[in-house]
Amino acid sequence: MKSGDEIKGYPLVAGHRGCQGCGQALAARIALKAAGRKVVLVNATGCLEVFTTAYPYSAWTVPWIHSLFENTAAVASGVDAAYRAMGKDNAVIIAQAGDGGTADIGIQAISGMFERRHPILFICYDNEAYMNTGIQRSGLTPLYAYTSTTPTGKASLGNVSTKKDMIQIALAHGVPYVASATIAYYRDLEKKVQKAVRVMGPRYLHLHAPCPLGWDYDPALTVKISRLAVQTGLFPLVEYENGQLVSVRKISKKLPVEEYLKLQGRFHHLFDSEEGKKAIARIQAIADANIAHYPLM
């Protein structure tokens, strides 16, 4: 018997083992529904793979393959090559990975996929650390976040580097469709996926995916936190076509970054000290720079 989700055509259906309030599960559910049913999904190792496919169960109603951590874009390239060789090029190929599988260990294969112009949508679910292995820092972990490999202490305010800019990296490869999105603005997310799948050539979608466990917040706040990331200017929602910025979600009223940071345990240490205040000011400067750059206001 088919479940309600299956009848509605969701590629990712209920019953998986995702945490309560998992931002990635929500992001995948919305994004992949928008991509339609004629898809092949290639998944990196990570939470999404682990919580959806524990044998003998699968939460996927579309063809799905997981190979390894860093080779997602290369496996997807092989799927594309095969489909073209077999004259079956009507399926949408989507490669998906977390932030580590995208910006760190996966970036070489992604660069190759971009450069060879494979018509593949690569989705990065950015929850800003290696959550599946227990909250270790990645290249997309934000400044001053606590992770288990950037612990806070007398001599540390957490992570010392800023997020790697995957949007610019994709643009530098000449990727014809590059966008960022988040679950809080899900219509925007749907539209971006629907547009992305119609573009010829590679496409890159960077999704903000809050993680209650790794970010240490009440699971009920996932959507709120995702919205605050946008409203503070820390996660700009942008869209590029053929290298041109074609849309930016404007911020109606700029909120201070504290509004976003204070809800998350990974930033709590910043509210304890003078050093922490200075750190918050530096995070505010990142948001202000984003707001001025696009501009978001």
Partner: peptide
């Protein structure tokens, strides 16, 4: 990885 994906 490419031949893996293609064969699959």
């Amino acid at each position: 990885s490419v031949v893996l994906g293609a064969t699959a």
